[in-house]
Simulated scan of single mutants.
Amino acid sequence: MSGTETRTIGVTRMYTDAAGETHFAEEKLDLAEVNFAPPAPSMFLSTATEAKASVYLLLPDGYFGDFHPAPRKQVMTLLKGELEVQVSDGESRRFLPGGSVLVEDVTGKGHSTRSVGGESLLIVTQL
C-alpha cells in the first residue's frame, strides 16, 4: 500500500526543560509515501497522532497573552494574520499563515502570544 520514497519536513516545537524554562526547537518529521486516497496519486504522510478535539481561535488585533503555560499539549496552525510568540528563555519568533507549532510547554514559565498586524485566526488541535 505504501511506496518506498520518504521525505522530511521541519516542525517547530515549544517545550519546557527540567528547570521550568520554555524553549523553541526545530524537529524533523518523517513522511512516507502512501496510497492514501485512491484513485488519487500517492502522497506523503506522517505517522498518525490521536487528537481529542479541534477548535478555531480568533485573536483580535493587538491581543496580548502574557506568560502562561499551555493548557494542554496541542498543535497550533496559523490560518490568517501574524503571531509573535516569546518563550521564557527570551527567544521570540514570528509565525505567518501556514506556520504550525507543536505546543508542549504545559508546565513551567510558558510563553507569551501577541497578534500583530491585524486579527489572527488559528486552528488548535488538542492532543
Rank of each mutant, 00 (worst) to 15 (best):
M1G: 15
S2Y: 02
S2M: 08
G3F: 11
G3D: 11
T6F: 08
T6C: 02
I9G: 05
I9D: 03
I9F: 04
T12W: 14
T12P: 00
T12M: 13
M14K: 01
D17K: 10
D17R: 09
D17I: 05
A19S: 14
T22V: 04
H23R: 12
F24L: 07
F24A: 02
A25Y: 06
E26W: 05
E27A: 09
L29Q: 14
D30I: 04
D30C: 00
D30T: 11
L31S: 03
L31Y: 04
A32P: 00
F36N: 12
P38C: 06
P39I: 12
P39H: 11
S42A: 15
S46D: 08
T47R: 11
A48S: 11
A48M: 07
E50H: 14
A51Q: 08
K52G: 05
K52Q: 06
K52H: 05
V55T: 11
L57A: 08
L58G: 05
P60K: 14
P60Y: 09
D61Y: 11
D66A: 15
H68S: 10
H68C: 07
H68Y: 07
A70R: 07
A70L: 10
P71H: 12
V75T: 10
M76C: 09
M76R: 09
K80A: 11
K80Q: 14
K80P: 00
G81L: 07
E82L: 04
L83F: 12
E84V: 10
Q86C: 02
V87H: 02
V87F: 00
G90P: 07
R93G: 01
R94T: 15
F95Q: 03
L96K: 14
L96T: 09
L96E: 13
G98W: 05
G99F: 10
V101G: 01
L102C: 04
L102H: 08
V103L: 08
V103N: 03
E104P: 00
E104R: 11
D105G: 03
V106Y: 08
V106L: 07
T107N: 14
T107A: 14
G108A: 08
K109F: 01
G110C: 09
H111A: 09
S112A: 14
R114P: 03
V116A: 06
G117I: 11
G117T: 06
G118F: 12
E119F: 07
E119N: 11
E119D: 15
S120M: 04
S120N: 04
L121A: 04
L121E: 09
I123M: 08
T125V: 14
Q126E: 15
L127D: 00
